[in-house]
Design a protein around this nucleic acid. Structure first.
Lengths: 115, 115
DNA sequence: TCGATATATTCCGAAAAGTGAATATATCTC
DNA sequence: GAGATATATTCACTTTTCGGAATATATCGA
């Protein structure tokens, strides 16, 4: 991954992208339709921003059937990882991040119950 | 200060602004002409970007004679301070930040010697 | 193969950000 | 007060980013 610090911040400067990254700090892997459900946003909107994060090397994607799952790139340079960790710990208790995680946790529960 | 996380990242997404903030993590206070000297940039360019950081509440300014000194706002919310600390520690050894600090240290020395 | 679902991409117009040049304002020095 | 220095702002322009709508692509299940 060849990304500059200023570039990383540009990626994090949009709410959709920031919330996506924050979610993936907590949940390991999510498919696009889950992002759209959490954000209440249109699918092309979410897909575009996830695409930008992927192109920059911040996220990796993987196809599983008709779904495409996104996760954090495990090979981020350490300085980028450090910053993301600080972002996560510094804003863990703020909205909308708490709500986003709660939403996902809830839908995971439902999935586990077979609903 | 009423700044959102995404807003903070937008401020840090421009090299001039990022380098300015990084310098002020190390040096406490600098006037505009020192920034222009370090960056080798035009004065209006630097002034504009420092102005954005000030308007957003990230920096404070103070007039001292014909100079205007900028410093980090000491009343940043803790989450913002945490992120800045991580940025600083994560990129301390990278260019151009090392060089920027070296430049400033050098000119401080010269000032101390009365040159 | 056909229809349904999930995702990505393209097109286009609007809004925002960035830049260089010129100019305005404030302060200092003489 | 006049000129010099430091800083901020405005103007005109270019570039980038963003959003919505439409469309393309891929997979699944019957």
């Amino acid at each position: 991954m060849n990304i500059s610090p200023a570039n990383l911040f540009a990626l994090l400067s949009h709410d959709t992208r920031l919330r996506s990254v924050m979610l993936l700090m907590a949940v390991d892997e999510l498919c696009v339709c889950e992002f759209t459900a959490v954000f209440g946003a249109a699918q092309p909107h979410v897909s575009r921003h996830l695409g930008q994060l992927r192109e920059a090397g911040l996220l990796r994607d993987r196809r599983g059937g008709q779904w495409i799952y996104y996760r954090l790139n495990p090979e981020l340079p350490s300085w980028a990882r450090d910053i993301l960790d600080a972002v996560e710990s510094g804003m863990r208790d703020q909205r909308p991040f708490v709500d986003d995680r709660a939403f996902i946790a809830d839908s995971m529960d439902r999935r586990a119950c077979g609903e």
